[in-house]
Structure formats: structure tokens, C-alpha cells
Simulated assay, not measured.
Amino acid sequence: MILVAGALHIEPAGRTAYLDGCAEVVAQARGTEGCRDFALSADLLDPSRINVFECWDTEAQLQRFRGSGPNSGQQEAILRADVHEYRV
């Protein structure tokens, strides 16, 4: 099993819009074979932070999904990312 966990940091004023724009990606991920969980959420203490958590059956399934990635607007909004993969 592969866990992906960490945080994205964006401008606080844009966080709600960023998360709203990710709803389709979350739904798509959760419907993908091998995805056990996929969540993006607003941090309760840091207004610039978005918490990331994913759980996948295999690395191959994760990588197939990963090919879609964030759109260019989402990518440009990320000021810093601290997200890591863990094999369990």
C-alpha cells in the first residue's frame, strides 16, 4: 500500500477557491481502481495550508492516476509543497 501525505501552501485568500476547484479531482481519484482514499482539506490553524492524504493499493495505480496532475492554474497557485510517499 502507498500513502501520500503532506501539505500544499497557497495564498490564504485563494484557499477556498482552490479547494472548490479540486472537488472533481477528488471524485475522480476516489473512483479510480486502487484508490482507497483521497482527501484535500483546509488546515484548521494555518490559513495557507491544504492537507493532503491519499491511500493507494499499488505504486502503478498511483502513477496511472498521477498522469492527470493538477491543471496549470492549480499548479501555479502552489507556493510550496511538502508531500511525500510512504510504502506500508
Results as ranks from 00 to 15, higher is better:
1 M>H: 10
2 I>H: 00
2 I>N: 03
2 I>K: 09
2 I>L: 14
2 I>S: 02
8 L>N: 10
9 H>C: 00
9 H>K: 11
10 I>G: 01
11 E>M: 10
12 P>H: 08
13 A>T: 11
14 G>F: 01
16 T>K: 15
17 A>I: 06
18 Y>L: 11
18 Y>I: 06
19 L>H: 06
20 D>Y: 00
20 D>L: 10
20 D>P: 04
21 G>W: 01
21 G>Y: 00
21 G>E: 02
22 C>H: 12
28 Q>L: 11
30 R>D: 05
31 G>E: 07
31 G>D: 09
32 T>E: 08
34 G>S: 06
34 G>N: 05
35 C>P: 09
39 A>I: 09
39 A>T: 12
40 L>W: 01
41 S>P: 04
42 A>T: 04
42 A>Q: 12
42 A>D: 15
44 L>M: 11
44 L>R: 12
44 L>Q: 12
44 L>G: 14
44 L>E: 14
45 L>D: 15
45 L>S: 13
45 L>N: 13
45 L>G: 05
45 L>V: 11
46 D>P: 03
46 D>V: 03
48 S>M: 03
50 I>S: 00
51 N>P: 00
52 V>Y: 09
55 C>N: 05
56 W>L: 02
57 D>E: 15
59 E>D: 13
60 A>N: 10
62 L>T: 07
64 R>H: 08
66 R>Q: 12
66 R>P: 05
69 G>S: 13
69 G>N: 10
71 N>R: 06
74 Q>V: 02
75 Q>D: 13
77 A>K: 11
78 I>S: 00
82 D>R: 07
82 D>Q: 12
84 H>T: 14
87 R>G: 07
88 V>C: 09
88 V>A: 14
